[in-house]
């Protein structure tokens, strides 16, 4: 029965060849540090799933953001878990991205023919930091508000365009409902869209070129 269904599906989807290229490919023997990339991917998936769940209740408005986060944390079943996973997942994501990067540098994995993989990786790092910064404001608690006030103020230091950057980030001179709304928009639409595209390219390249082998002393 199972075989029949899988045959039927394979005839139409060709999933078997996809499965073979992605999962049944040969890779060099590597050590545990090579799991950092997939761990980062797992953290990203975790962020996506829990993030989507959080938007079910979260309201990006100064009137309600805090109350809705409080509601998620204290009232909704497993809300504390979803929010906890998202909160600590964010830290894990940053930590893993950086460690993954350090591993890549250590083994020289960014070298020919994997330069493009590296470039997309640096892009991903920036996006992850962007996630961290924009997500920080959303709970609209004291820490969120003041850290973002200072964080956006820092951008003001930029020569010439500092003030403009500050205003664009905040959507005005002050940190207001507009700021919260746009941080939310960036956090759940702009950044995820870019993240998915870059992860797609990154993974495609990893599978196409194959993971680098651990270099020997002569290499």
């Amino acid at each position: 029965m199972v075989t029949q269904i899988s045959e039927w599906l394979d005839e139409r989807l060709g999933w078997r060849s996809v499965w073979e290229t992605i999962f049944l490919r040969k890779v060099p023997k590597v050590n545990w540090s090579y799991t950092l990339g997939s761990a980062t991917l797992f953290a990203a998936v975790n962020q996506a799933v829990t993030g989507i769940l959080l938007t079910i209740y979260y309201v990006p408005s100064p009137d309600q953001a805090y109350a809705s986060v409080q509601y998620i944390t204290t009232q909704v079943p497993a809300g504390w878990l979803i929010r906890g996973l998202h909160h600590y997942g964010a830290s894990a994501m940053i930590l893993l991205t950086v460690l993954h990067m350090v591993r890549v540098i250590f083994y020289g994995s960014y070298k020919y023919p994997r330069e493009m993989t590296w470039f997309t990786g640096v892009g991903l790092l920036l996006i992850v930091f962007g996630f961290g910064f924009s997500g920080y404001l959303l709970p609209w608690d004291q820490k969120a508000f003041w850290a973002t006030t200072v964080g956006t103020r820092i951008a003001e230091v930029t020569p010439l365009v500092g003030d403009a950057i500050l205003r664009i980030m905040r959507g005005g001179k002050e940190l207001t409902a507009i700021t919260l709304a746009r941080f939310f928009g960036v956090h759940v639409w702009f950044l995820p869209a870019t993240l998915i595209i870059l992860i797609g390219i990154h993974l495609y390249l990893v599978i196409r070129i194959g993971i680098s082998s651990v270099p020997t002393r002569e290499e």
């Binding site: 504390w80 996973l85 909160h87 820490k143």
Partner: peptide, 12 residues
């Protein structure tokens, strides 16, 4: 998440 929990301070 269970033992530490995601912090939430006073409202902004």
């Amino acid at each position: 998440a269970y033992f530490v929990g995601a912090p939430l301070e006073e409202q902004a």
